[in-house]
């Protein structure tokens, strides 16, 4: 395996070969593909009829309807197109966290980004990668060529976690820079102010992007399974707290549960797909389960 292909696991790829990730809503593309297009025309799938307007091409007139009703109607078809996929990967310092025996969240997210890129490029979709912390630190514009995967993998491998998270700023920035509607896949631990996150996501949804949140969390972050006197030191700041975590475990879990529930509910209300991924679980299992679920919902 080439060193740039660290995050491209063949086993995972083999399992993804039968899966497809399709946009729920219409996406704008140049080429025909698997995703619904907002444009009508060249496709074979009927969409609707509309009144004839001067200047319409006569070949789209439904002559059968004209014969029966003596009225001119234009027959429209749903265009199917390829999608532009924007993978937003959080590479802030908090993504470097790894519980005992686990991979870091960054590695886990990189595997995920690589797998998704592979999958989408296989569907002739354009895939772009945005790596961010408090701002976008690396950006690979969307492209649909297969060799584009190499660029993505190289970028993933050369990146290391640094900086604080400023998700809202990043989401606003992405929303303003994207020219076409597409599929936005946010891979992050979402450790930022919730209100700011929701604001950024709302901006993306306003621009009619299909948004998927892949929330990567470490098992320790979810469960706080530490023993004895522990001094927790924040990886993004110099904050610290010295405590016996065992005594705080229940309250902590409760607070985290509330937090995750809130994100899931808010995302659900906005039509955003939300998937919590525990880095202690195998990536393929989690990803395949999510893609299968998404396919069922389409």
């Amino acid at each position: 395996m080439k060193s740039s292909r660290k995050y491209l696991d063949p086993q995972l790829l083999s399992k993804l070969s039968n899966m497809e990730l399709v946009a729920k809503c219409a996406v704008e593309g140049f080429f025909s593909g698997q995703h619904p297009s907002p444009f009508h025309g060249f496709s074979v799938e009927y969409s609707e009829h509309r009144d004839y307007q001067p200047g319409d091409e006569l070949k789209y007139l439904d002559w059968k309807v004209f014969g029966r009703s003596d009225k001119l109607y234009i027959k429209q078809f749903q265009q199917e197109t390829n999608a532009t996929v924007y993978i937003l990967l959080d590479c802030s310092k908090s993504m470097s966290f790894a519980g005992e025996g686990n991979v870091t969240k960054m590695d886990y997210a990189s595997y995920l980004a690589a797998a998704l890129s592979y999958l989408m490029l296989g569907q002739s979709d354009s895939v772009g990668l945005y790596m961010f912390a408090d701002r976008i630190v690396k950006q690979i514009p969307p492209h649909s060529k297969r060799k584009h995967l190499n660029a993505i993998l190289t970028t993933l491998q050369s990146s290391s976690p640094a900086g604080r998270t400023n998700l809202a700023e990043v989401l606003h920035s992405v929303a303003e820079s994207t020219k076409r509607r597409g599929l936005v896949v946010l891979i992050s631990d979402l450790l930022d102010e919730q209100a700011d996150i929701y604001s950024g996501l709302a901006h993306l949804k306003y621009l009619k992007h299909d948004v998927i949140i892949l929330h990567t969390m470490d098992h320790q972050e979810l469960n706080l399974d530490y023993e004895g006197l522990v001094q927790f030191e924040d990886v993004e700041s110099d904050q610290m707290i010295r405590t016996f975590p065992h005594s705080l475990k229940e309250a902590y879990r409760s607070r985290v549960r509330e937090y995750l529930d809130d994100i899931e509910k808010t995302a659900g209300k906005s039509g955003i797909d939300y998937c919590l991924l525990d880095t202690s679980e195998p990536l393929d299992k989690a990803l395949i389960a999510y893609l299968a679920k998404r396919k069922r919902m389409m």
Binding site: S94, F97, E221, E233, D234, Q239, I241, P245, Y259
Partner: peptide, 17 residues
Amino acid sequence: FQRVPFTMLQFLRSGQI
């Protein structure tokens, strides 16, 4: 004590941070 880098300090007791 054991030093542990952590990310979700705000979910521990807020007054202790």
